[in-house]
């Protein structure tokens, strides 16, 4: 009975639309961070959308829809990109601890002159700095940091989304955050020299603006 069949499909489509709509911004943002490229992010989101629709009948209502969608996104990403790009060897910075950025700010004369050095640094971090630092992270760290720090998933949810043990989630997250701080310090220091005393950077021979 085609009439009935199409009614069922229409109902599914309605339920699927309701489920995925509120997560599209987050999924798109995450696709951008994973692929680091607008066109690839759009492709990845489309693939995620199609896979989710095709396997919608396996989704159990009342379970974690958001985690289910992000898991599909991650798997689609792995299928599309990881087989073409080899992850470079991960170099761990052993001399960096969890409080790298805090220590750097405390040691810095430039920032201490600001009175409240911590706040001076944090308020300086712009969207481009944060995105740039995230995109410089090795892929496996980046996925975990994005899921935890941008998307707000718990360790357990991330373990399920990426299909890795919780211990691995924690170690990648902590190492990722350490590397992120090293990058952010580079950006902040550069920006601070530029903005010091409210003057434009004094480029040798430059006329300034």
């Amino acid at each position: 009975m085609p009439q009935q069949e199409s009614a069922a499909v229409a109902e599914d489509r309605e339920r699927f639309t309701a489920l995925i709509t509120e997560h599209l911004d987050g999924l798109f943002r995450t696709a951008l961070r994973l692929t680091r490229n607008r066109a690839n992010a759009e492709d990845l989101l489309q693939e995620t959308f199609l896979r989710a629709w095709r396997s919608f009948h396996t989704f159990k209502p009342g379970t974690n829809a958001r985690a289910w969608l992000y898991r599909i996104l991650m798997n689609a990403h792995i299928d599309a990109y990881r087989r073409t790009t080899r992850e470079p060897d991960i170099v761990d910075q052993d001399d960096v601890d969890e409080f790298y950025l805090y220590s750097k700010v405390q040691e810095s004369d430039e920032f201490r002159r600001a009175g409240n050095p911590e706040e001076a640094l944090l308020s300086q971090l712009m969207e481009a700095d944060v995105v740039g630092a995230l995109e410089d992270l090795p892929e496996s760290f980046r996925a975990v940091v994005v899921l935890a720090d941008i998307e707000g998933f718990s360790y357990k949810e991330i373990a399920e989304i990426l299909d890795i043990p919780i211990g691995t989630v924690m170690s990648r997250l902590h190492r990722g955050r350490r590397q992120l701080q090293v990058k952010l310090w580079d950006f902040a220091r550069r920006a601070h020299y530029v903005r010091a005393d409210g003057n434009a950077p004094s480029t040798p021979g430059g006329a300034g603006r």
Binding site: E118, L122, L125, V130, D149, I150, R177
Partner: peptide, 17 residues
């Protein structure tokens, strides 16, 4: 500091996408 740092990372990375 760490609490504020993570908060700022989240706020910035969620902006405008």
């Amino acid at each position: 500091f760490q609490r504020r740092l993570i908060m700022i990372i989240q706020t910035r990375a969620r902006q405008g996408y």
